[in-house]
């Protein structure tokens, strides 16, 4: 086999099998973590800090939208989970959690 073909083959193996294997193992591990949190405290926060920032921004920008109430409900669900739970699925700063207000 030519050197070029060998390089392409190795790149393919890493880009496909490597990525797929890592994704599978990581995903199974993360879902296991979620299960442990549910067993321990009944629930966990559904959104990451970045995702929560997106949610807040949406509510700010679309306050009168027909979908605003649904978004506010989701925000409230997240806020309640962060206040109720002692262990979190995502990584949070204490100050981020304390500064969360009801919308």
């Amino acid at each position: 086999m030519s050197i070029a073909a060998i390089i392409v083959m190795i790149v393919c193996i890493v880009a496909l099998w490597g990525v797929a294997s890592v994704a599978l193992v990581y995903s199974l591990g993360q879902e296991e973590r979620k299960l442990q949190l549910i067993k321990k405290q009944g629930s966990f926060e559904p959104y990451s800090p970045q995702a929560l920032r997106d949610l807040n921004r949406w509510i700010e920008q679309n306050n009168t939208s027909e979908h605003a109430q649904e978004m506010r409900n989701v925000h409230e669900e997240q806020r309640a989970a962060l206040q109720k739970c002692t262990s979190y699925f995502y990584t949070w700063n204490r100050s981020d959690i304390e500064s969360l207000k009801e919308i």
Binding site: V19, A20, A23, S27, E31, F44, P46
Partner: peptide
């Protein structure tokens, strides 16, 4: 479920894993 992951499992793993079988 409502809190199951989608981006990694339903997106990355499904598309890349599918192609891994092609490889």
């Amino acid at each position: 479920g409502r809190n199951d992951d989608i981006p990694l499992g339903g997106g990355v793993f499904t598309a890349i894993g599918n192609t891994s079988f092609g490889l």
